[in-house]
Computed example of a mutant assay.
Amino acid sequence: MPLYLPAARAQSYPNKPITFIVPWPAGGSSDITLRAMCERAGKVLGQPFQIDNKGGASGTLGPATMAATARPDGYTLSQLPISVFRLPVMQKTAFDPLKDFTYVSHLSGYTFGVTTAADQPYKTFKDVIEYAKANPGKVTYGTPGAGTSLHIGMERIAAQAGIKWTQVPFKGGAETNAAVLGKHTTLQADSTGWKPLVDAGQLRLLCVWTEKRTKNWPDVPTLKDLGFDMVFDSPFGMGGPKGMDPAVVKKLDEAFKVALEDKEVIATLEKYDMSPRYMPAAEYDKFARQLYVEEKAALEKLGLAAKS
């Protein structure tokens, strides 16, 4: 094959729409904010992004499908949530986060919180903890899946508080919203897809998992305020299958950097209490590899790692 071909391909890239996998159901905070980023990045690149919602397996189904089936030509990309670094530690998976992805750009992180239905008797997070102590296993909480930050965070809270509660995994925020509203679960632990329901008074926000209280809900305590020495914001980025042309990666990375500086994109992120946390490809790749090491150690400490 002539040596000039990859460079020629990179120069003409992209010449058709790009598929972007959102590994969560439509309508949640991830879906809405990633669509905003893709719309702006598409304008920079001169080709639109086509969103493919592929929820399941705690946010890893989409990336795993991409890694297994997509060509590394820059026309199939996916959000890479933190669960891609956790699930392979917890169970056998079809992908290896250290080998099967090309890391393109780090993008943002989440504000997580725990909600309950407004007409539940729990006025504070402390009320739930006290009930859980008296009734082991009876408090249920919905999450977007096993191995997500929400699952790991709730189990770390339980370990610190000396309680037992029961996870009920779902595919994403639309389902966890419905579950807690309908009292199918006592609690919901999720990112800010619950914001409209909290603001409308249908859900009660009991705590947030950020370093400091958020400007959207200044009266809601952080986990640190409540005596739990932990912060969870679940950083995420985007990438493609292994083996992508570095010149194509550079074009994509630059387009998403522009997107994260766009006022409309920033406003969409702020709506869900998120903010840009951009890292270029090389820095993100290094960050991802260190994150895997840290998550593996944390899961082993919690007893959630698969036995080899």
Rank of each mutant, 00 (worst) to 15 (best):
W165L: 09
N53D: 08
K242E: 11
G303H: 03
Y4F: 14
L34E: 09
G243A: 09
P88G: 03
C38Y: 00
P23Y: 01
L304S: 06
Q79F: 07
L299S: 06
G303T: 01
K183P: 10
E300Q: 12
Q120L: 15
Q91P: 02
G55A: 12
G193N: 11
T19P: 00
W165I: 02
L252K: 06
L45T: 02
L205Y: 04
D100F: 04
G42P: 08
W194K: 12
A259N: 02
K16P: 08
A118P: 07
Q160N: 13
P235G: 04
G193Y: 09
E211M: 08
G28Q: 09
C38V: 00
G74F: 09
P6N: 03
W24S: 15
F20Q: 04
L299C: 05
V293F: 05
P2K: 14
E130A: 06
P218K: 12
A117V: 12
L87Y: 00
F170A: 15
M66P: 01
D52C: 03
A118T: 05
G59Y: 01
G56S: 10
A267W: 04
Q91G: 07
I32W: 09
H106T: 03
D285W: 00
Q188G: 04
M279H: 06
P25T: 10
T186K: 09
V84G: 13
D100Q: 02
G74H: 01
T143W: 01
P72F: 06
V22F: 06
D96C: 07
P169E: 13
K126A: 15
R71N: 15
K123I: 02
A267Q: 11
K99F: 00
T19V: 12
G172L: 00
K251R: 15
K286D: 08
K16C: 01
D31C: 02
K215S: 12
K251A: 01
F125K: 10
G162P: 11
D229Y: 03
N177F: 02
N177I: 02
R9H: 11
Y122S: 14
G237Y: 04
D31E: 10
L150Q: 15
L80I: 07
N216Y: 03
P136A: 00
I18H: 05
K296S: 13
L80C: 05
A306S: 06
T33P: 04
G55M: 01
S108H: 04
F20L: 14
A132W: 13
P81Y: 07
W24C: 15
T33E: 13
F232G: 01
F49C: 07
G162R: 12
M37I: 09
F170I: 11
Q167F: 05
L34T: 13
L77D: 04
G201A: 09
E264Q: 09
V198R: 09
M154D: 07
Q120G: 15
A94F: 04
I152G: 10
T192A: 05
S105C: 10
P6W: 08
D190H: 07
L80Q: 05
E295C: 06
L107Q: 11
A161R: 04
F85S: 13
Y103K: 05
V220S: 10
I82K: 13
P81F: 01
T60G: 14
A178Q: 11
K133H: 08
P144I: 05
G173W: 12
N177Q: 09
E211A: 06
Q160H: 06
T214Y: 06
A36V: 12
R40A: 15
A94I: 08
A57N: 07
L80M: 10
A118L: 10
G237C: 01
D199H: 02
V265G: 15
K271A: 08
